[in-house]
Amino acid sequence: MRFLSAAARQIIGLFVGDWLQSIVVVLILAAGWFAVSRFGLPALVILVVLLAGQLVWFAYAEGLKQSRRRSPS
């Protein structure tokens, strides 16, 4: 049973490190699905920029959090 729950945790953990970030990525893709079919290439470019932007934002936020944890003063 413990093995199965570890396997289930591992499978979810493959895709989700931070739930908020995962939700944001899915929302960007959902918006992209709507926009790409109507606006074509410009929407595709915005989709990629948003995905790259969220990577910068969440990594930066996590970096700040870790740095503050290291030096609480």
């Binding site: 989700v16 931070d18 970030q21 893709l29 990577l55 969440f58």
Partner: peptide, 23 residues
Amino acid sequence: GTLLLLFGLRWLHKAVLRSAGVV
């Protein structure tokens, strides 16, 4: 594609934090 994107971003996120020296 969505799953692969989430999977890849998780690796990339961790790699960025490790390379930046915070993890």
